[in-house]
Design a protein around this nucleic acid. Sequence first.
DNA 1: GCAAAAGTGTTTCCCCTACACCCATGG
DNA 2: CCATGGGTGTAGGGGAAACACTTTTGC
Lengths: 228, 228
Amino acid sequence: MYIYDYPRPALTVDCIIFGLGENSLKVLLVERADEPFKGMWALPGGFVDINETIDAAARRELEEETGIQSMFMEQLYTFGDVHRDPRGRVVSVAYYALVNLSEYNVQPGSDAHRAEWHEVSQLPPLAFDHTLIFETALKRLKGKVRYQPIGFELLPEKFALSQLQRVYELIIGKELDKRNFRKKILSMGLLIELPERQKGVSHRAAKLYKFDKAKYRQLEAEGFMFEI
Amino acid sequence: MYIYDYPRPALTVDCIIFGLGENSLKVLLVERADEPFKGMWALPGGFVDINETIDAAARRELEEETGIQSMFMEQLYTFGDVHRDPRGRVVSVAYYALVNLSEYNVQPGSDAHRAEWHEVSQLPPLAFDHTLIFETALKRLKGKVRYQPIGFELLPEKFALSQLQRVYELIIGKELDKRNFRKKILSMGLLIELPERQKGVSHRAAKLYKFDKAKYRQLEAEGFMFEI
DNA sequence: GCAAAAGTGTTTCCCCTACACCCATGG
DNA sequence: CCATGGGTGTAGGGGAAACACTTTTGC
């Protein structure tokens, strides 16, 4: 049994890129330029090169689509139904990524194809099994945001507590009590209060904070569990 | 860009099969019959057929190794380092499975190769990147057992509460208070008390229970969260 | 001075934890 | 009768949830 004797599925990555809109959670979709599903919206993705790890392929796709080199990214699940691609057997490893739109001013569409941010609650029909992939990603995000500090990845480095609270409310999908939220998040001791404040707002300017990654890693190693 | 123009990685599945020993958690390992890593222990696995889903390939491997047709199984993670297999580019989708040893009397080694149950705390060196895969599986199991009712999968259909408690203690790795454990698990209302009792024990026979899957699914749909 | 969001404490209640003794059964 | 695990209740503490008003700032 030599490993080259077997016909092989093609291997791709697909990326679910979440971003934060004004008052909604968004996902980056691309319009398919070719058949199959020409003209339909799809998740950005592409083939895994024979000399590149799957993670590297996902990073490459993320950068191609957004121009951002380092963002939070995590493998989601591998989809391998026999008929998920009409062209033949294609197995896809899905990744989800979180990006801060306001800081980077992401310009989708720098590539040849059209790309747009869509509200997660109003997605168009998607090509292939991408609706299933997207739903899997959203479910994972909702589950994970409560017990891992990934909400910060959607915000700029410096943020106000109300922004952070809005992130959680958008993802979890229910309102949180302001005082209890602040108490809880501050009591973890994982936020560094900055000397600066919000600028250009027409009301009292909020204190800005940043997430203390080093401290989180230390606490995590000691058995601390993040939880909202 | 036609999908057949790309050189493709080979695609395999690897299975981490957990079973419950007398007083320990065990994993099924096979001894490699061929190079590379001939004679070393490895996770059972094999190639994904071009006409079979990845899940089906994993199920097939599980059945080949254990003779059991339906056991709890879940995709774990996909491992795709470029040099993880010295024969060439091989991407492996790992699955973990939970099996109840006492009920099925699993006979590893029915196949041509040697297979044995090993205590998870005393594993030999493994072939390929299988130590990494195994550690990923164990971490997942430890994390998941607390908030999904998968502990039951390691037990026979009818079990005593003390058996269930032992499962949790083994996986989580710390002792639990008997009264609190019983209170919590019974208060969820997910166990059906059976009219029968343990047999053949030289002390007071324990009540037997079974897990109420239908009720769990119903509660889950209503937003209920299992948690130990 | 008004609109809009920032910021702040206290009480109540429930759940988690800690903890020790009697009971049933087989040998 | 003894060894082995089965089975049970309560008190205290801590964290989660509920809840409303004052402060700051720009216009």
